[in-house]
């Protein structure tokens, strides 16, 4: 993507928050690709001699009721949590791009109908729409991804539509029409790439948000089920011991918060940069 080619001076003006976010995301990517680099333990190794230990030097996040090292489980859970986040965001984006482009390009009647459909979809909060789908299909990894993806699609669809309407007014679009390019060629070569510009930023924001939704569902016991080290499932598993071993609940939650904050902050920075580059 050309989006990465930032102006040299802009690259130098890095805020501390951005640096921290990049570092956090880098650690997450390592946990995603090679969790073995961040921990030497096995996420499923049961040790009944050391159950429910509070955080210490040997167990940074403490241990759970089966003596499994919580830090190791969080590291290995990254893959599943991000898998859900990526899957749900990708699904939402596909729906959003199709709806947004059709509405933005067709305008008129088709646009009105699609926009009204989006208004209706907006009346359903993401969590409740997800719960309705889970009630119908039963809780599973696939249902969670589909539920969160469909739930968050309308917001993105509205953004894509706005972007298409904005870009099609640009001078270079009119110029290429005037030069005699076919409608399809203009859409493919100019409109599509330019309207897609903010998408990298939107996806970064979307992944963080999807992880929060999915872990919320798991927390309610309606998402990914406990033996899995998915972050929400860890929260669900820790609930029984909340009064005696609160770290089982607070630390995985903190990881979700930090990961989401880093992704959100990075997404916002990208958004500002790309807006600047588009001018």
């Amino acid at each position: 993507m050309t989006a990465i080619a930032l102006p040299y001076r802009a690259a130098l003006r890095l805020r501390p928050a951005t640096v921290v976010s990049v570092l956090v995301v880098a650690v997450l990517v390592v946990a995603l690709i090679a969790p073995g680099l961040l921990t030497t333990r096995d996420p499923n190794a049961i040790d009944l001699q050391s159950t429910l230990l509070s955080p210490s030097w040997s167990h940074w996040f403490g241990t759970d009721d089966a003596g499994r090292d919580l830090y190791t489980r969080v590291v290995y859970g990254t893959r599943e949590s991000f898998g859900i986040g990526l899957g749900a965001t990708a699904l939402a984006m596909v729906i959003a791009i199709v709806l947004g482009f059709v509405a933005g390009l067709a305008r008129g009647f088709v646009d009105t109908v699609l926009s009204r459909i989006l208004d209706v979809a907006f009346a359903f909060p993401v969590l409740l729409l997800a719960l309705l789908l889970i009630a119908i299909r039963g809780p599973s990894l696939g249902t969670v991804i589909v539920a969160v993806g469909i739930g968050s699609a309308p917001g993105y669809a509205r953004m894509v539509r706005g972007q298409v309407l904005h870009v099609r007014q640009a001078g270079y679009i009119q110029a290429s029409h005037a030069l005699g390019h076919t409608r399809w060629a203009v859409i493919r070569q100019h409109l599509f790439p330019n309207a897609m510009r903010p998408l990298v930023a939107m996806m970064t924001l979307g992944i963080g948000q999807s992880i929060v939704w999915a872990s919320g569902l798991a927390f309610l016991g309606l998402g990914v089920a406990p033996p899995s080290p998915e972050w929400g499932a860890l929260l669900d598993a820790g609930r029984a011991a909340i009064t005696t071993s609160p770290w089982l609940e607070i630390l995985p939650g903190l990881v979700i918060v930090v990961a989401t904050l880093a992704l959100t902050s990075l997404g916002r920075t990208l958004q500002h940069r790309l807006e600047g580059a588009a001018r």
Partner: peptide, 26 residues
């Protein structure tokens, strides 16, 4: 009620609650 209904796959109750919330929103 909603979480119990989702667990027992009681779809009418879930839809009803979702619809009431959507109604409040609208």
């Amino acid at each position: 009620v909603l979480v119990t209904a989702v667990n027992t796959r009681d779809v009418p109750t879930v839809s009803g609650i979702v619809l009431v919330v959507a109604g409040v929103y609208v």
